[in-house]
Structures are given as structure tokens and as C-alpha cells.
Design a protein around this nucleic acid. Structure first.
Length: 414
RNA sequence: GUGGCUGUAGCUCAGUCGGUUAGAGCAUCGGCUUGUGGUGCCGAGGGUCGGGGGUUCAAAUCCCCUCAGCCACCCCA
């Protein structure tokens, strides 16, 4: 029995869900294309280093969530837990450093070793948009606007809110980090166990701790905003101004900290309270130092990823399956004729099914279950006259249509 | 990794102070209808009661272990 079960946290995606996922990803892709994004794909696995070096030694993804294994040569590989690092690798591998700015749209599966729960799986799917090579806050604004545009097109605007924060540039962040460490060191004993570890490794993460005791301390902690240098302040102001000029509503969340270490300046999350404990549906930020840490030329970057399953859950209803026409041979003598006509109609662009067996009754029954719009009955009598019987499956009305011009008679089912 | 809840037919669920061959609805298949679906009537098939062990004359029901699912913590899409 165990062997017949999919691996924990993975799911077969059946037809209804596929139509829903396709609606989500196609909507996203079509809108992104209007903004000048082109679709690229990276492999679903990379050398472990690609993720381990970029995401940060202390990030949860690296320390406990990666699917890592050795291949037959002993090389350590990892199923991608996120898109950005792989995209930056692609950017360098393919010598795209001369093609800036580069706007990338991606979609595909991600893998994280976590306990599944509502809105969280071990294999899930993301859509992703990135801009490489633009240091101007215009890129931040555009990337957020794209996210808002897509969420709006999916009809989710009234159930999400945009949370925005800045992490500042390296200098500001370092200064802030020092202040934070000083502050929390004063309350070392009061911090939760996890946060004491964070204090050593990544003090910013204490800010979004959910521990009650931590939260009290966080309330009085120094604010990032007070540590921002002039450049960082100006950058954030421009992003905010841009969003306002586009009428994109947002809330500044001073404690918003993203999971990966590579972020700087803009950090944002579109969140919802409709997915249980999972808030984020589309989130990202700026990562100006990432390409360089991977060994490439200094290249600014900003982007986001969104969870296809989470978006789909919010959209809710799967689009209906397409409704076919069904060709029905009345007797076995019309089998071949039925096959030929079916194929002819398919080539003319119609959605046509031909059953594999059964009498007329059984075939009509199946046509009905397939939600067919009409049935095309081929009997001895009809074929002798060079016609077919066209049965409307809604009304039950039947009429005859000449075989030679069948396509014209079926035009309304197109 | 930790905690709470839940596992009975393909699906949704009844059935537990232990007691004859474990039920229903929906779905499936067949018939009423030998060239006509949807509604109706009649009938049929389908269950190691998640798995293993224990208690008992007797276990879906009680006990132990285990597996899986869901939800939550952690963290995130």
C-alpha cells in the first residue's frame, strides 16, 4: 500500500486542478509578456552549491529544507527550493551579462522538505518574475506593479494586501545589525531559544519571530528606518512614491524580513488571511549583491515568486472542461466512416470525441457524461442520403446536415 | 523535528457501553428501452473496517505499536 501512495507532500495534479493551474500561470505569463518579460526555464536541480552559497548558511531553506542527494559521480545535487539562485546561474552560464536589462518569467516545480499543511507541500509550483541589471527603483516599482496586476486579473485584489519594507543597502544594514545585536543582547535571557540562535547568526530574523515574549522585545527594538543612510532612505522613498503614483496600496511593515539572506533595499509580500497559517502568496525583493557573490559581475536584481497552488486555492473554482462534439456510428458498419469524419472535423478545428465501443444508447450516455454539446449520428439511412443526424444534447432536437458541408453546419459549435 | 485531530465501498459518511452474513446516499455495471442520453423503476457488483500485535467465547468497536492524511508550531510561495 505504501508504494501506491505518492511521497508525502506531493500530489498528482488531476485535470480539474490542471485547468485551474493553467489559468493562473497563463494569466501571469500573458500579463508579464506585456511588461516585456520573456519565459526562460532552468533545470529543476542544480549543484548544491548554487543554493547553499546564495541563500545563506543560516536560512531555514538551507539548514533543513533542501532535497539534497549525491549523483552517481558523488556530486552533490539539490532539487531547487526557489528560483532566484538558479536564474542568476543561468544568467552567467549563458553569457547574458551583455544583454541587460534582462526580464525573466519562469514557472515550474519547487521542492522543500517540510511537513505539509494547508497551502504548503513538498513539491509545489511557482511563477516567478525577475529583472536583472536595473539599479533604479523604477524596476522595484514595475516588478511590484506586475504582481499587483496579476493578482488583480485573477480577481484576488480584495483579499490581499501589500506589505512593504526596506532592508537598506549593505552599509545601512550593517549599522542596523549592530544596533539590534546590542539591543537584544541586553535581553538575552528573555529571548526564545530560537531567537538566541538567531542573535548569533542572523539577528534581523528575530524581528518576525512569532514568539510572544520575543514580540514584546521587538516592539521596543530599534527600527531599520532610523539606521538608513541617505541613499537607502531616498531609494525607499522613490519606491513608495512610484507605487503611490500607480495607485497601488501598500502598508509599511518595519518588521518584514525575508527568508533569504541575499535581499537588500526593497522587500515585499502580498499576503492574505484566507489560506490558514500561510500568509504569503506573492513575495520578493531586491538582491543587488547576489550575482556578484556567485562569481559574476556586479549586477543588481529584483524579483518575486508566487505559489501557484496558493493562488489557485484563492481563485477556487476551476474553469469548466471544454465541451466536445461526439460522433456516434449507429452500427459497426459505420465505424470507419465515423473515424474518418471525426478526424476531418478535428482538423477543421473542432473538439470532437469518438467513443471506442457500445451501441447508440451507451454512446449517447457517454456523450452526455462528457457534457457534449451535440452528437453526430451516422447510420445506414443517413449515409445512404449523404447526410448525418445532428442531435443537440441540450434540447434533444435533431436535424439532418449534409455530410459534404458538415463543417459549416457545425460552425456554431466552434 | 514537535503537538492536536482523523483513517469503514471509487466518493461523502452511518455503525463503537464488544454480539448473527458491516449499512446508506452518490458513483459504476446490467435490465425495463434490438438506432437515441439526461428524469423514473428494477436489479447487480464492490469492503484485508489503514497495517501489525494483544485482551476476549466473540473486536470496525477495548489496549499497545506502527503507517498515512489533515491542521497547527517552526519557516515560507
Amino acid at each position: 500500500m505504501a508504494a501506491l501512495q505518492p511521497i508525502r507532500g506531493t500530489h498528482d495534479i488531476l485535470a480539474d486542478d490542471h485547468r485551474l493551474y493553467r489559468l493562473v500561470t497563463e494569466t501571469a505569463y500573458e500579463i508579464a509578456a506585456r511588461y516585456g518579460y520573456q519565459e526562460h526555464s532552468t533545470p529543476i536541480f542544480e549543484f548544491t552549491e548554487v543554493f547553499a552559497r546564495t541563500l545563506g548558511d543560516t536560512s531555514d531553506i538551507v539548514t533543513k529544507e533542501m532535497y539534497t542527494f549525491a549523483d552517481r559521480n558523488g556530486e552533490s545535487l539539490t532539487l531547487r527550493p526557489e528560483y532566484t539562485a538558479g536564474i542568476c546561474r543561468m544568467f552567467m552560464s549563458n553569457g547574458m551579462t551583455q544583454q541587460l536589462p534582462l526580464k525573466v518569467f519562469c514557472r515550474g516545480p519547487m521542492f522543500r522538505y517540510e511537513r505539509p499543511q494547508k497551502g504548503r507541500q513538498r513539491q509545489f509550483h511557482q511563477i516567478d518574475a525577475e529583472i536583472l541589471g536595473v539599479a533604479d527603483p523604477l524596476a522595484d516599482i514595475e516588478v511590484i506593479a506586475l504582481g499587483a496586476h496579476i493578482l488583480g486579473a485573477l480577481g484576488l485584489a480584495d483579499r490581499i494586501r501589500l506589505e512593504l519594507n526596506t532592508l537598506g543597502d549593505a552599509e545601512s544594514r550593517q549599522a542596523y545589525r549592530a544596533l539590534l545585536v546590542d539591543y537584544f543582547n541586553g535581553f538575552r535571557e528573555d529571548l526564545s531559544e530560537e531567537s538566541r540562535v538567531r542573535l548569533e547568526k542572523n539577528p534581523l530574523r528575530i524581528l518576525d519571530s512569532k514568539d510572544k515574549g520575543d514580540r514584546v522585545l521587538v516592539q521596543n527594538a530599534p527600527l531599520m528606518a532610523d539606521s538608513l543612510n541617505a541613499l537607502s532612505q531616498d531609494f525607499f522613498a522613490q519606491v513608495r512614491q512610484g507605487l503611490e503614483s500607480l495607485n497601488i496600496e501598500y502598508v509599511v511593515e518595519p518588521h518584514l524580513v525575508r527568508g533569504m539572506d541575499y535581499y537588500c533595499h526593497t522587500a515585499f509580500e502580498f499576503t492574505t488571511d484566507t489560506l490558514g497559517a500561510q500568509g504569503a502568496v506573492l513575495a520578493g525583493g531586491r538582491y543587488d549583491g547576489l550575482v556578484e557573490t556567485m562569481g559574476g559581475p556586479p549586477t543588481p536584481g529584483i524579483g518575486w515568486a508566487a505559489g501557484v497552488e496558493r493562488l489557485s486555492m484563492m481563485v477556487g473554482e476551476a474553469p469548466p472542461a471544454p465541451r466536445p462534439l461526439v460522433v456516434i456510428p449507429v452500427g459497426s458498419a459505420q465505424r470507419t466512416q465515423a473515424l474518418v469524419i471525426t478526424q476531418r472535423l478535428r482538423k477543421s478545428g473542432l473538439h470532437v470525441d469518438l467513443g471506442y465501443s457500445g451501441n447508440v444508447k451507451k454512446r449517447l450516455n457517454r456523450a452526455n457524461k462528457a457534457n457534449a454539446r451535440a452528437a453526430i449520428l451516422l447510420g445506414e439511412d443517413e449515409l445512404a442520403k449523404g447526410v448525418v443526424t445532428l442531435r443537440d444534447m441540450e434540447t434533444g432536437e435533431q436535424s439532418e446536415a449534409p455530410l459534404a458541408s458538415l463543417e459549416e453546419h457545425l460552425a456554431r459549435y466552434r
